[in-house]
């Protein structure tokens, strides 16, 4: 379904990109220059709910339980082993590729990747800064500053 949506969007922008889809990791990673990881392992909504509520029952004060605290630890324990498998495949199949990680908990995943796969060319990013400039800042600041932020955002995308 996503393939159809992305292909349709690509048509609207004059077929600027070539779109392909696969479920074969080996095939996808072969010859890749940039690999953007945004995977969530396990039943995301049910497990996130548990990450949030179970530590609270035992007296923690965390708000989300996604990236910090005990819930963040459980989340890390599910995410890190799987993402390290992907990173090892990247090293094996195409070691020159640049790995960009958006999966949470970003800081803990990146720390693990740095320790376990130290030669991987890797960067951890949070996409929420885009949402912040597109939606929330509009209500918080004046227009001029918003345009300034959008300019920075565009520059950041170009660098990536």
């Amino acid at each position: 379904m996503v393939y159809e949506v992305v292909s349709e969007d690509n048509k609207k922008i004059g077929n600027k990109f070539t779109i392909e889809c696969t479920s074969n990791r080996e095939k996808a990673l072969k010859g890749a220059d940039f690999i953007i990881n945004s995977t969530e392992h396990g039943d995301r909504f049910e497990l996130r709910w548990q990450d949030n509520t179970i530590p609270r029952k035992h007296g923690t004060t965390e708000r989300m339980g996604e990236n910090g605290g005990a819930g963040g630890f459980f989340h890390s324990a599910r995410q890190i082993p799987e993402i390290i498998k992907i990173a090892k495949d990247v090293q094996r199949i195409y070691p020159d590729a640049f790995f960009i990680n958006y999966s949470n908990p970003v800081s803990r995943i990146c720390l693990a990747l740095k320790r376990v796969v130290p030669k991987l060319k890797m960067l951890g990013l949070c996409h929420q800064i885009g949402l912040l400039t597109s939606y929330h800042l509009q209500a918080m600041i004046n227009r001029d500053l918003l345009e300034f932020w959008n300019l920075i955002n565009i520059c950041m995308v170009d660098i990536v």
Partner: peptide, 23 residues
């Protein structure tokens, strides 16, 4: 060649194309 891992998510695949289109 840019690989999006986890692109089956409607919240990740299509918006990422929009991001890449800005470059």
């Amino acid at each position: 060649k840019i690989v999006l891992i986890g692109a089956g998510s409607p919240a990740f695949g299509p918006p990422t194309l929009i991001d890449l289109n800005r470059s």
